[in-house]
Amino acid sequence: MRKEIVRTINNNLGNAISLIDSISPETYTDTSIGPYYSSIGSHIRHALDFFDCIIEGLQSNNIDLTARKRDEVISTNPVAAKEKINAIQTQLVSFIGVNTDYLLKVTDNLGEGKETIMYTLESILAQANTHATHHYAIISYMMQSLNVEIEIPGFGYNPSTPVPKREGI
């Protein structure tokens, strides 16, 4: 696997650590924002679940994105979330230089039941990174509703979003 991909994903995951370090545990677990009444922590947990499924499924060549652990400790404990992020980052670093030119079976529910699609490790990790960014965008809306202002440049923005349109949170 190319180190540039790992570096980019780990930087994006590092943004979640920056967020966690910038907010209170009460803000992390606040469920007062509709329409879903989920917490920032639950969005962080959900994004990490995606990476966890990838790592867990590598040995068997059967990555099942519907088999998420949904560890509520990560949703409610910012320290546990940061530990999980660090563990995922360490695992991703271990992939650098490893041959990833083979196909993996990835199962997900696309809305009409489970489907299995072939991916490379780099492509499923790129999708996981984009998925995390999507949830960061939701978190940005939640932060605005909670009147919590912090600045993490580019947080919640797809890298293809023109820089003049980015404001960060």
Rank of each mutant, 00 (worst) to 15 (best):
R45S: 02
I17A: 10
S75A: 07
G97W: 04
E151Q: 14
I150R: 02
T107Y: 02
D21G: 06
I117M: 00
H134I: 04
I33F: 10
D101V: 08
I17P: 02
T76C: 09
N62P: 01
V98T: 15
Y119G: 08
N109P: 11
R45H: 05
K114Q: 09
T66H: 00
D64F: 14
G156L: 05
L110D: 03
V93E: 00
A132D: 07
L121S: 07
R70D: 09
K165H: 10
S145P: 01
I85G: 02
G156M: 05
Y37V: 02
A137D: 00
A126P: 01
N77K: 06
T90F: 03
E112V: 06
I20P: 10
Y119H: 14
V106S: 00
P162V: 02
E112G: 08
V106E: 00
S94R: 04
Q144C: 06
E115T: 11
H43K: 06
N12E: 07
T120S: 14
M142L: 15
M143P: 01
Q89I: 06
E26T: 15
F51R: 09
T8L: 04
I33Y: 05
G154M: 08
I5C: 03
L146W: 03
N11F: 14
D71S: 15
A128S: 13
Y102D: 10
N99L: 12
A126F: 11
R7C: 01
E4I: 04
G154V: 06
I40H: 09
K105L: 05
V98I: 15
A87V: 12
S160D: 04
F95T: 04
D108F: 12
I124S: 05
G14P: 04
I33E: 06
M142I: 15
T130W: 05
T120Y: 08
I55G: 02
G41M: 13
A16M: 14
N62C: 09
E115I: 10
I74T: 12
G97L: 06
P153Y: 13
F155I: 03
N61P: 03
T31A: 13
I9S: 02
N12Q: 03
H46F: 02
C53W: 01
